[in-house]
Simulated assay, not measured.
Amino acid sequence: MAKHLARDLEALQRQLLGMASRVEESVYHATKALETRDVRLAREVIAGDVAVDALENEILEDCLKILALNQPVAVDLRKTAAALSIATNLERIGDLAVEIAERVVALVGTPGLEAPGAIRGLADVVASMVRQAIDAFVSLDIRQAERVIRLDDEADRLHAEVIDELVGKMKRDPEVVEAGVSMFSAARHLERIGDHATNIAEDVVYLIEGEIVRHRPKSSPRGG
Rank of each mutant, 00 (worst) to 15 (best):
D135I: 10
A186C: 15
D173A: 04
V205I: 15
G121T: 09
A187T: 14
V177D: 02
F137N: 08
V181S: 14
E191K: 09
D203M: 10
S128E: 11
K171L: 05
H189Q: 12
K169P: 03
A118P: 08
D195Q: 10
V181T: 14
Q144A: 15
L190W: 01
E178P: 03
A127C: 08
S139K: 13
D156V: 12
R143E: 15
M170D: 10
M183R: 01
F184E: 10
E209F: 06
Q132V: 00
G180P: 00
A127I: 10
T198P: 00
S139L: 15
N199W: 02
I200M: 05
L113T: 06
A118Y: 11
E178F: 10
V205N: 07
A118F: 01
V138H: 13
E175M: 15
G194C: 11
V176G: 09
L151F: 14
S182H: 13
D153F: 12
V162A: 09
I149F: 08
R192V: 07
M129Q: 05
V167N: 11
H189V: 10
S139N: 15
L190Y: 05
V177I: 15
H189G: 03
E178G: 12
M170P: 01
P116L: 14
D173F: 01
A123F: 05
H189W: 12
R157N: 14
L140F: 11
K169R: 15
I142F: 00
L158W: 03
K169T: 12
I119K: 04
A115R: 08
E154A: 14
A145T: 01
D124Y: 00
H159Q: 14
V162K: 00
I119A: 02
D152H: 09
H159F: 15
M129S: 02
G168T: 13
D164P: 00
R147W: 05
I142E: 11
H159N: 15
A186R: 12
Q144W: 01
G121A: 15
P174D: 11
A145H: 03
A136L: 01
A145I: 04
A136M: 09
I134S: 01
R150N: 11
V162N: 07
A118T: 09
D141W: 08
G117M: 02
K171I: 06
D173H: 01
F137R: 06
V126D: 02
E161D: 15
F137E: 04
A136F: 05
A155G: 04
K169I: 10
A115P: 06
V138N: 13
R188V: 04
D152K: 15
V138F: 11
Y206R: 10
I193R: 02
L166G: 01
L140H: 12
V176R: 08
A187I: 12
L207G: 05
I142Q: 13
D173C: 05
Y206W: 04
G180K: 00
T198K: 09
D153I: 14
G168H: 03
